[in-house]
Amino acid sequence: MHAFGAIARLAALETVRRPVCLLVTLATLAGTTLMPFFLHYTLGDAPRAVRDSALALLYTGGVLLAAWSAAEAVGGELRRGTAALALAKPVGRGAYLAGKACGVALALAGHAAASVAATLLAVRAGAVEWHTDWTAAGPALAVAPLALAWAAWRNRRHGRPFASAACGALWIGYPLALAVAACRAEPAGGAGFPGNLDWAIVPAGALAALPSLMAAAAAAALAVRLNTVATVSACAAVFSLGLVSGPLLGAHWDASFPARAACALLPDGQAFWLTDALDAGRGVPGGYLAGAVAYAALWAGACLALGVQAFRRSEIP
């Protein structure tokens, strides 16, 4: 357990230290924060458009970040030789691979939490047509510049890596900004806490973040044999096909065994997208969320199991 914990912790730290993590995080959060300003002219559909666009950014950004980070955490270390040094210690290959995937998933949890907070702020900021709620937009817009300034100060003063300091500041900053906005009622006598935020987005955001857990496991398994670019490409292909597997293959379900097999093996991306329930005002049921978590965990576990088998047969040059 010590070794598993140490490997997971180091994988999480290395993930947030990579510049690509900061780039994707910043792009996702900045895009979400600015969404209300881009979508002012939607003929009354702004809140839905902002919500769906932000959740889509969380979904795709999370999958991309997870795939890249896990590919580098495993494949990158195999190429650089640090994996050989770790595996020369009393560390099983299964513990090593699972530790890497869990460490990446842990780092992504921060990304997901910040994205959900940013989505809540963005939806409130653009809730009223032709109008920006600055009690939400202001704190949200302030987070990124303050986080980058903080990271620059930490780097200059204490020599800490800029990327990890900035990521950490963003992941903490957005929930803080949400807390600030939650404490302030909507303008013009609007609702106060908790009615001033659409909390139904939280389980929907958690649902949209689950594919990144699956992508981390899949990429960790693939990276045992493939390089980073091939791993990320394969993950992108698998998850893209998974998103359309229902409409594409569902019609052939009864007639074709390959179609049924593909539907069963590909990750069902639509199962993690429940914005229609939000439109109907119903929210995501707790039981459905629990089922989705179980599905994601089983699918990720199966990928890791296959990856461990491949890893045990791999030589570490």
């Binding site: 070794a3 030789g81 020369a88 890596p161």
Partner: peptide
């Protein structure tokens, strides 16, 4: 492997870690 120590030909270390952090990591692996 609990009883084996290995020094590779090329130092394969995590560049962002300090010597203390590196040794703490390997100590946890043991």
């Amino acid at each position: 492997k609990r009883r084996i120590g290995y020094l590779p030909e090329e130092s394969r270390l995590y560049p962002q870690l300090t010597p203390r952090e590196t040794l703490e990591f390997h100590a946890r692996l043991f």
